[in-house]
Design a protein around this nucleic acid. Sequence first.
DNA 1: TTATAATGCGTATTTTCAACACAATAATAC
DNA 2: GTATTATTGTGTTGAAAATACGCATTATAA
Lengths: 258, 258
Amino acid sequence: MIEYKKELQRLIEDFKTNYLPSVSVDLVIFGFHDGQLKVLLLRWKGTEEWCLPGGRIRNDENLDDSAYRSLRERTGLREIFLQQFYTFGDVLRYKHIDQHETLRKLGLPEEAVHEFANRDVSVGYYALVEFENVVPTPDFFTDECRWWDINQVPTLLFDHNDMISLALKTLRRQLSYQPIGYSLLPDKFTMPDLQQLYETILGQSLDRRNFQKRMLGYGILERLEERKFGGAHKAPYLYRFDKEKYEKVLAEESLFVG
Amino acid sequence: MIEYKKELQRLIEDFKTNYLPSVSVDLVIFGFHDGQLKVLLLRWKGTEEWCLPGGRIRNDENLDDSAYRSLRERTGLREIFLQQFYTFGDVLRYKHIDQHETLRKLGLPEEAVHEFANRDVSVGYYALVEFENVVPTPDFFTDECRWWDINQVPTLLFDHNDMISLALKTLRRQLSYQPIGYSLLPDKFTMPDLQQLYETILGQSLDRRNFQKRMLGYGILERLEERKFGGAHKAPYLYRFDKEKYEKVLAEESLFVG
DNA sequence: TTATAATGCGTATTTTCAACACAATAATAC
DNA sequence: GTATTATTGTGTTGAAAATACGCATTATAA
């Protein structure tokens, strides 16, 4: 326990010295499994309170890189789809909880509690990751990191429920005018797999035949000779993303500055 | 001059006490005049360097409110279209200029120069305002505030050229799936006026007849009995936005959280 | 008074999107 | 083995939306 407090002290000192004050990054990490859309959440030490993963920005670090770093630390993944969607800065962002109470449970000293209780402006990013490859890893302030079904997310700390809502809304909109799926599915997948992903994200069923036409229309899928046997009935073809074309289509509609 | 330095000292002290460190807000304020799209820029005191208007966030102030406040201070306008579009946080945001040199020209003390030279994470907002109603007003650090033609914007300080590009891109996209024009045009306007606005923003010409059909299709325009005489040839009708319906259509597609 | 050029309103044409039909096929039941 | 069943692969058709275009009307200018 003394070790913990020492470590905490070091951490706070480190934050003050090497990280930007009053700004942070929060991540909505979407995964896909069992036909369900999932988000990765963290449970704060010694509490039953859950929240989104996030992090702070080093003085010498780009904002985007900071988001990538946090994502890597929580999931073990690199090179995945990550996109900024909104920046949150309401004074009452922290209204949902008795902030001080929760922070004290973590064993923070008074000074640190005060430090933490100030409103940060937080830049929201959302990520799409392949469920199977993720190794959920808690950080210093949390002792559990796991997937939650998107429909069963509890009331979270801060304004994190709002963040998830807006991230999902942005994701759905993005889905309707550009392809998504590269980092959410295994390397080889069937058309029904892809369709189920879309239906899960959009929350509605789609016509199988029209869906296939549209996906092939993007010109980003490569049909393999292989087929997926073992399921009941006719065996569907396996597909793979043509990464080069995929990136190209994505870039055309991207919001980012070149 | 002593008065100036004292005031500056006060300002810096005020920033340290009452404003969030390492975060700021920048505004891309679009206006429309003479068939040209304009942006409002500021010239730094004693230099020929131009930049976007912006501001800082008070400790007790919502992020959005801070943007509205800056906008009000620069234009004298309130209740206009303002929307967040991206947050910029590259370490090299300030690469475009010899930062220290420029800041020293402003008469900042060494300490303040160091303060200013650190990278801020900046939240970008864009606004649409009615050109005629704006009273361009410089702030403490600038001695000129005026409109620039969007095609003649010079190389700006920081990453402000990128900001304008991205704001324009976002505006164009927004234009294609929801009506815009309420705060950019005078109360009464003709269909050709509106079309010219669209063509200017999009940078391409549109079919006159199809444009009219689409605009009327939104159901947000009210045609008046009046017509606009004086121009050459046939006199076009005057229109006015039905604000209630306008807001309704706008709200349906908004990105913001309720 | 006539010519000009822009407006108001309307009609084809094309393209896109949504709904639906049917043969092929891998597992399952018998 | 053989027939059955549910699912996949590949179409076609029709509606709706977007786009292209035609023509009479009209305020100014010649």
